[in-house]
Design a protein around this nucleic acid. Structure first.
Lengths: 150, 150
DNA sequence: TTTCCACTTGCCACTGAGTTGCATCTGCCT
DNA sequence: AGGCAGATGCAACTCAGTGGCAAGTGGAAA
């Protein structure tokens, strides 16, 4: 049950995203709007397969969904991410998300292979001899995730 | 051109690995020895496809290679790793690597896949809310190694 | 408003990495 | 040596991702 206010908010967000789409030289098409609407409505990142399944009853072909996810990612509106299971998942490129890999460390579970965001863990790197590329590194911790540790 | 000393060293390493295999309840089979020998001989992590291609002329089937990589990984002799291209790559779980991994951080080059020790780089982890497992984590930085960056 | 053209789509097929079933082979314990 | 459970080769399959082509269409220009 979606409230009227939330529906209007989502629509506004889709409109804003479409503006960015157009500004990037891409056409406003029904398929793209539908993909963006699904990403706006979803809390979690969605795989191509999941989105394609949702949009199929509306007549959108999965090849189209795939191409559009790729286009939207190239255009910078969408980011794709792998959680360790070799499935790309797509989510909106929220403001400031461009450096997601560098914003916080990730835990790679050495047992199940899941990649978990650790936004509350701070990591400080002290490089030796003015090693300049440290700031561009992503930090990954390797150990057991909460599920495998329990 | 492999020197005689290097060849003997590799053979000794394979023998040691086979001992661990047997200790773990797995059989010593020609296919498994061949897989281990390839991993011993390789500097970089190898994909299933790469190993299968090497071993095919010796009569080893790729399904067997796949199964054995999985078995060796489950047994703890081999570790698998993804460089971001959705291909699993396999490498030996080196002796002392469990502790080695925690002694200093490593750089995993996102281009060539080389794992480089960074003994002079200090990393301080500040976990949130008394997260007790932080001390048991290995730290891995992901970015370009010196060669790929130049 | 109409035209037009480059972009987009649906349909179909393909690729590559990974995986499974089954009959047969084989390592190793007794 | 015998026997049995594990391992293998062969063949086929799954799944996520991807590409070709004819037809459809968004939007700029006239």
């Amino acid at each position: 049950m979606v409230t009227r206010k939330a529906a209007r908010q989502a629509e506004t967000e889709v409109d804003a995203l479409v503006d960015r789409l157009r500004a990037g030289g891409l056409r406003r098409t029904a398929a793209r709007v539908a993909v963006l609407a699904e990403l706006v409505a979803s809390v979690a990142a969605l795989s191509h397969g999941e989105i394609a399944e949702i949009l199929a009853p509306m007549g959108f072909d999965r090849a189209t969904v795939f191409r559009n996810l790729t286009d939207l990612t190239s255009a910078g509106l969408v980011v794709r991410r792998d959680l360790g299971d070799h499935v790309w998942r797509f989510a909106l490129q929220r403001d400031g998300e461009a450096d997601h890999g560098r914003q916080h460390p990730h835990l790679l579970c050495s047992d199940c292979g899941t990649l978990v965001c650790l936004p509350d863990v701070k990591v400080k790197i002290t490089p030796a001899r003015g090693w300049k590329r440290a700031a561009k590194m992503e930090v990954q911790l390797k150990g057991l995730c909460d599920i495998c540790a329990s």
